[in-house]
Design a binder for these strands. Sequence first.
DNA 1: GACAATTTAGTTGTGCACAATGTAGTTTGC
DNA 2: GCAAACTACATTGTGCACAACTAAATTGTC
Lengths: 157, 157
Amino acid sequence: MEEHPADPRMMRLEAQLCFALHAASRALDGVYRRELRDLGLTYPQYLVMLVLWERQPLSVKELGAALRLDSGTLSPLLKRLEAAGLVARGRSTADERSVLVRPTADGAALRARAALVPERILAATGLQAGEIAQLRQVLGRVTATLDAGLPAAAPLG
Amino acid sequence: MEEHPADPRMMRLEAQLCFALHAASRALDGVYRRELRDLGLTYPQYLVMLVLWERQPLSVKELGAALRLDSGTLSPLLKRLEAAGLVARGRSTADERSVLVRPTADGAALRARAALVPERILAATGLQAGEIAQLRQVLGRVTATLDAGLPAAAPLG
DNA sequence: GACAATTTAGTTGTGCACAATGTAGTTTGC
DNA sequence: GCAAACTACATTGTGCACAACTAAATTGTC
């Protein structure tokens, strides 16, 4: 197990970290898929409902800002939620450009049925509370840094 | 610190962690998208090439095991890489069920052009070496636990 | 008031991901 | 030796994600 900081190791490090992130995201997606099947929701749809359960109504733009998604993803997703009878959409009277989204009665009722999901997911990760907080913090920082675009310079040497 | 089924703190914690993981994965994907555009590769295609540059030839099954992907994802992806002239596919003579994949000359040559990608990506994350190793370790453990399926540890009672 | 620039959603096209199913090659049971 | 079971891939269908573009409404400027 000699860890010698040689040149080609960087490729392995990058591949391992980025693959680990990608794979963890897909694995989590799979757990949500099984957990949300009974509710008729996908994970991204569940995220939308989570936001709408907390704050309502929201425009597509506000939802996009909260979930870091653009209209190309949200428009069809919201149409599917509307077709399922879980949300209602309507143009804002104040600004006809905006589409306001809010849960229907069925959509609001789904909140109770989804109440047990969080703890089941957290349990499935097998993480301790401290690890969860730390992981969330690091991932949030990485996302912010990646979104910020170009970093000044690589701190090599 | 009582854990109640519908504890709003737990819902927020789950939402924050899982969303952070999802968002970080997409943010990383975006950085790779910009970084790999010149090479004509997507991030999953880059992952495939990374594996093939190290070990060759590999069957679709072996690639799937390495990347945690099934044939429904890999088959069209490999067809695109083949259409781009970066890999060659052919049935194994030993077992006609297996399809062996290997880089073409162009695919092998791409390795040199991709040599600078890893350090650029690592720099873009803004993480220290220690953080990277720790993050990779935690994510790997989470993925393994999630894939294990059943609720690993039930700390109830 | 007219018109250019901006904002907000929606549409189209490409690609990833997975479930479910189909198909051909291989191995096993008898 | 042959049918059943298994294996490796491919295909189909659904949904997410984003880039690029379009359409409609609003705002700013004159």
